[in-house]
Structure formats: structure tokens, C-alpha cells
């Protein structure tokens, strides 16, 4: 008897969670309740890193410091050039009456949990609604786009990575602006480009940047580098695979980008986050 009650209850809950957005608030409340568990589970790793920092060799630290200084110098050099280029860009855009680029604000977050299911690619970060995180917000690491926030709790949020089989991101080829959609296929080092015509100008080594077309990801951030192109005359579309640039399974420090919402994005954010996000 109770088997019947509880299995029907589970089926109802599953249906409701799949179909109605209202359930998200229930889930969010429950998640906030179990958030301490996630933090406790992450503690050994934190302690390990803390011990590592405390007991790090002087020599190693010194070398790391030197290396970082060198890097900072190089980056500053690049930045100097960037300032000139940015002003030039703005001027040129004004000349052609183009719209201004969106300035993005960035918050640094830390990954505190990985999804324990190897079939899905999701991570938990230590910023939540109390830090102003919203559903749909893009997540980056130092080298490229990692994914987007799919559910927000009070102190943590859950991020769907671009390599998950449910995720798709609009991209364009940096070299020539050809647009495509990069879909995850469940392998963390591989994305697939769908529906790219056989005649499209794409080569191995092309950098894919976000095209910003769906209004969810900002334009112009690196996403992946094309690793495999096969033109098969027997098929309508070329088979193209790409390797994500972000260190999806290594990064710890990540960046949350907040955008001023675009007019087009209103409708998109209304979509249930269970649906494939284009």
C-alpha cells in the first residue's frame, strides 16, 4: 500500500519538477537546507589546500612569485595596448554609429562541489542569491566560457557546464565570423558543432568565440578550439568537433559575469532551465 502511495508521490513530484517552474522555489529551499552538507564535504579539500599553503617550500613560493610577476608584467604590457585599441574601437564605432559594447561586471567565485554523477556535467559554486547571482548567468574561467548558472540557492548555485549533453552555446569562428551552435556531448574535452554546411569555411585550429546571439552569453569570449573537421560528401553537414578552452575539470577559481539584460533576453530567461538552452 505504502509502495503505491510513495511511488505515485515520486512520479507526481518528478512530473511537477519537470513541468512547473514553481517547484524551483521548493527545490531552492531544500537546497539551502542541505548546503551545509556540501560545505562539510568540501572541507577536507579546503584543509588540504590550507595545509599545502602553510607548509609550502620557501623556494617554491619564491619561484612562483617570480613567475607571477613575470606574467603580470606581460599582461600589463598587453593591457597597455588594449587601452589604445579599446579607445580606437569606441571611436570607430561612434564613427559608424554602432551600438556600444556591453560592459560586463565580474565576480570571482569558487567551485565547491562537483556533480557526483559522471553522466552530467554540473558544478556547485560558493555564490548564491545573496551575492546577486541570477539563473542564466554565464560562468568563465581565465581562458574561456565554462557554462551557465541553472539554479540559485541562498549561498550556493549550480552551474551547467558547456560540455554537458543538455547544453548548447551559440558561437562564431573568430577568423571569419561563421556562426554555429556548439553542443556538449557529455565528454568534458569535446563539443560538437551542429548543422554546419559541408562548404563552410572551417579548419582545425580555428578559435570559436561566443556570438552573444541568444543574449545569454556575452559576445566575444573564447569558447573552444576546433580539433577535428570532416567533410563527408554523403552527408548534409560537416562533422566538426572542438575542444573547450576553459579548463572544465581543473579550474577552481571562476568568474561570474553579470550583464545588463538585453531586450531579447527577457523571453529566453523565461524558458524553463530544463529545456535545452540555445
Amino acid at each position: 500500500m505504502s509502495l503505491l502511495i510513495f511511488s505515485i508521490l515520486s512520479l507526481l513530484v518528478m512530473f511537477a519538477d519537470y513541468k512547473f517552474r514553481e517547484v524551483d522555489s521548493v527545490r531552492s529551499a531544500l537546497s539551502t537546507m542541505v548546503a551545509p552538507l556540501q560545505i562539510i564535504v568540501d572541507t577536507p579539500a579546503q584543509v588540504w589546500r590550507w595545509v599545502g599553503r602553510r607548509t609550502a617550500d620557501y623556494e617554491v613560493l619564491h619561484e612562483e612569485n617570480e613567475e607571477l610577476k613575470r606574467q603580470a608584467l606581460i599582461l600589463q604590457l598587453k593591457l597597455q595596448k588594449m587601452v589604445a585599441i579599446t579607445t580606437e574601437n569606441i571611436r570607430l564605432r561612434e564613427l559608424i554609429n554602432g551600438s556600444k559594447r556591453i560592459e560586463a561586471e565580474v565576480v570571482v567565485a569558487e567551485i565547491i562541489g562537483l556533480d557526483s554523477d559522471p553522466f552530467t556535467h554540473e558544478v556547485v559554486i560558493n555564490k548564491g542569491a545573496s551575492d546577486g547571482v541570477i539563473s542564466g548567468q554565464p560562468l568563465l574561467d581565465a581562458s574561456g566560457i565554462m557554462g551557465q548558472v541553472i539554479s540559485v540557492n541562498r549561498y550556493t548555485s549550480r552551474v551547467l557546464l558547456i560540455s554537458d549533453a543538455r547544453h548548447a552555446i551559440p558561437v562564431e569562428i573568430n577568423r571569419n565570423g561563421v556562426r554555429a551552435i556548439a553542443v556538449g556531448n557529455g565528454i568534458s574535452s569535446e563539443l560538437e558543432l551542429l548543422h554546419l554546411p559541408d562548404t563552410a569555411d572551417i579548419e582545425e585550429g580555428d578559435i570559436l568565440i561566443s556570438s552573444g546571439l541568444a543574449g545569454r552569453f556575452p559576445h566575444g569570449y573564447p569558447v573552444a578550439v576546433v580539433s577535428y573537421v570532416k567533410h563527408d560528401p554523403g552527408r548534409t553537414f560537416a562533422v566538426v568537433k572542438a575542444t573547450p578552452l576553459a579548463a572544465l575539470n581543473r579550474s577552481r577559481q571562476v568568474l561570474l559575469v553579470s550583464l545588463n539584460p538585453l531586450p531579447v533576453s527577457a523571453e529566453i530567461t523565461d524558458l524553463s532551465n530544463k529545456e535545452k538552452v540555445k
Partner: peptide
């Protein structure tokens, strides 16, 4: 337990609840 596991793992709510019930 199943519901809690679903929330922790970020699954569809009720998925583990169903399998654990059976």
C-alpha cells in the same frame, strides 16, 4: 532519503525517491 539525494545531486526531484521506494 531519495528526495534529499536528488536535491544534493541536482537531479530531477523524485528520481532517486522513486528508485529507492521500489
Amino acid at each position: 532519503l531519495g528526495i534529499l539525494l536528488d536535491v544534493l545531486e541536482g537531479n530531477l526531484l523524485g528520481l532517486n525517491a522513486f528508485s529507492l521506494t521500489i
